[in-house]
Design a protein around this nucleic acid. Structure first.
Length: 290
DNA sequence: CTAGGATCCTGTCAGC
DNA sequence: TGCTGACAGGATCCTA
């Protein structure tokens, strides 16, 4: 999925393009993609969009009338707004530009001012839930989610949380959203490269200082990604019409296997750690054998 | 409680 | 060309 920076990009886009608009109808094309929790679809109709929030990789759209839409894009979710102004962000695919709905479209929201919001999701892992706003914080994964990367005191929180996973390898540990919010596969690999940490290093073999360093690095790479143009909008159309890749703008290891390390020129390799594709520099990121 | 693997889905790509 | 298996920017559920 879209990781924290991509979800933040979606949030900013929706803030610009749908706040203040009214939801007139909803069409659910895939039942599993949309669920009403302790309410019904009629609570949605006529509601205005008040505020767009983000918590970790979850998007929260607060509506008038006391209800909220909570959305998780998972691996392949994307949001596309079409109307007087167009916007697309999330998992980059051709659907950004295609005529919609297409075969990946799961939910369509009809807004006023001739605006439509499409929730597209190839693999159907993502979801949208409508629920009373007061119940949003009770969603289990939100309730136990770790600190935001730029929150005050985040590194101490991170440290405390990650020490629960002493026997785990560092990569899966930082992917755990209850340790810190927002890190996904890209930023895990980038943070570990930045701090010269081998992804298979056991947490117990890392010092507090090193762990805090990893925490800061994660915040930094995610901030940089947001700043670098918020990814997806610019990724898919270059001036010459070819597809671009926003990773080019900041990635040091992710999908750079076969290319030279930006620090030592050693060839970046791709392996598998805890079931996830993992990129690293075999020279910079040595596994401490203990 | 934690650690690790299977699982939910569709699409694409490498290799035969 | 057509088939097969591996894999993918995530998180949950199940088992040990």
């Amino acid at each position: 999925m879209p990781e924290l920076p991509e979800v933040e990009t979606v949030r900013r886009g929706l803030e610009n393009f749908i706040v203040g608009k009214q939801i007139l109808r909803v069409d659910v094309l895939n039942e599993k993609s949309f669920e009403c929790v302790n309410c019904s679809q009629k609570n949605l109709i006529g509601a205005r969009v008040n505020k767009i929030r983000r918590r970790g990789k979850a998007l929260i759209i607060d509506l008038s009338g006391g209800f909220s839409l909570v959305c998780h894009l998972k691996m392949t979710g994307q949001i596309v707004v079409r109307g007087q102004e167009n916007f697309a962000a999330g998992h980059p695919t051709d659907s950004f530009m295609a005529d919609l709905p297409d075969r990946s479209t799961r939910v369509i929201f009809g807004l006023n001012h001739k605006t439509k919001l499409f929730f597209n999701d190839q693999r159907k892992f993502g979801w949208i839930k409508l629920m009373p706003s007061s119940e949003v914080v009770k969603i289990p994964f939100l309730a136990k989610m770790g600190p935001e990367p730029w929150e005050t005191g985040v590194s101490k929180q991170f440290l405390k949380n990650i020490r629960r996973h002493q026997n785990s390898m560092i990569k899966p540990a930082i992917l755990d959203q209850s340790v810190m919010a927002g890190i996904g596969n890209i930023y895990a690999d980038e943070s570990l490269w930045a701090t010269k940490t081998h992804p298979e290093t056991r947490v117990k073999n890392l010092s507090d200082k090193k762990l805090e360093e990893i925490c800061r690095a994660a915040g930094k790479v995610m901030q940089k990604s947001i700043d670098s143009g918020g990814s997806t909008m610019q990724t898919y159309v270059k001036a010459d019409g070819s597809k671009g890749n926003y990773l080019e703008k900041f990635a040091n290891v992710f999908r750079r296997d076969g290319q030279p390390c930006n620090r030592c020129q050693t060839t970046i390799v791709k392996t598998k750690v805890a079931g996830r594709g993992t990129h690293l520099c075999p020279k910079c990121q040595k596994l401490a054998q203990i």
